[in-house]
Design a protein around this nucleic acid. Structure first.
Lengths: 205, 205
DNA sequence: AATTATTGATACGGCCTAGTATCAATAACG
DNA sequence: CGTTATTGATACTAGGCCGTATCAATAATT
């Protein structure tokens, strides 16, 4: 479509610019998740995006700014629930059937996915370098998920307990690279257990 | 005691070697926790330990081996409960009063401390580079903690639930650098809540 | 059609770091 | 006491990477 043939120089049209920027962010996203910030060179990002480093710098600034742009795009995907195909996207908070267990199933599938865990790991690793980015991630991810559970009818305390139990030790092990992504049926079992325990643990409003 | 005056050369006595190696591990431990693996140079470790890089290499090998040595020493501290003064050390599993809540209080104080959280963050960051080290950390930390709860009278399921709730979202936020270490009273409240919920959530054996 | 902005290709400067080498000094060991 | 291992101090090699510069090419813009 707006795909510019490789090796082509000259001034790009605005549509081509958007497509090129998206390619850069895609390439950076992939490399960051599989190697981490320090191990990704901008040469590698530029090569995978089919772009030279100069274009990369004029479009995003420096390496840290590129990281921020990548993560913030992911945040805008989470909660959108559109056809972006992002594995860590959360369903819209105002879904038709606000059932707590179904909401928990959706959250578990999203946040326990390979991509979401890799992003979580990246944010923990870079929290020292980018504190505000870590805060944004927390709000767009774990906090938003708990808010969805509140929308589904839980109290804030119940939502926090249910969310904690939903991820549980599995999430800790996954952050350490010790476990694979759970199956959908496993996620459903976890979600049901987490919601039931949370309801029993906190008094009704 | 066996402290060699700085700038002194020549063959060291075995006691001096041990003291020197401990100084190196201390220096590496401090720098790793406050800066992370990639941001710590071996020159910085050598300088803080009062040693030259050559000594560092002949004593430990390369940079990755030094990381492993540092983390493994921390593992040997955890569970020892002696006078090492390590903040993430767990009390001995066969303590006199195996009360679940008191055990949970001890675990919470240990694993929610600044040092333990920093180590946890380091292990998550380096899990890709050192999978076996991440596995060892998990066994010596979270798994050992749950085992202590089992020793204190909980079932394995109850222990996992109690441990998960004890750390909870606070631990997630601390990994992201968003929260400070909790007060002892706060830890006690968390421990009591976590154990009570875990007991209620799982059937008695 | 002329101008101007932007890119590709490439190279380079500057900086940092891992790891090694050299040499003199010095103390443990036999 | 002589030998030998080990260290301090320092310099060095090799490599990687960030960020910038140069120059020709090319297409959007006017």
């Amino acid at each position: 479509m707006t795909q510019r043939s490789i090796g082509k120089r000259g001034r790009p049209t605005p549509a081509e610019r958007r497509a090129r920027d998206a390619r850069i962010l895609d390439a950076a996203w992939e490399l960051l998740l599989e190697r981490g910030f320090a191990e990704v060179s901008l040469d590698a990002v530029a090569a995978r995006a089919g772009v030279t480093k100069r274009t990369l710098y004029t479009a995003f600034g420096d390496k840290l700014a590129l990281l921020h742009a990548v993560v913030r795009r992911q945040h805008s995907y989470a909660g959108a629930g559109d056809e972006t195909g992002q594995a860590d996207a959360l369903p819209p908070a105002d879904a038709a059937a606000p059932d707590p267990v179904e909401t928990a199933v959706a959250i578990g599938g999203a946040l326990l996915s390979d991509e979401a865990v890799a992003l979580h790991r990246l944010m923990i690793s870079e929290a020292g370098r980018s504190p505000e980015l870590a805060a944004e991630f927390h709000e767009a991810g774990p906090l938003a998920a708990q808010q969805h559970l509140v929308t589904a009818g839980l109290t804030p305390d119940q939502a926090e307990t249910a969310f904690t139990l939903l991820l549980g030790e599995l999430h800790r092990r996954r952050l350490l690279g010790l476990d694979a992504a759970p199956s959908p049926s496993s996620i459903r079992t976890r979600a049901a257990h987490a919601v039931a325990t949370a309801l029993a643990a906190h008094p009704h409003p």
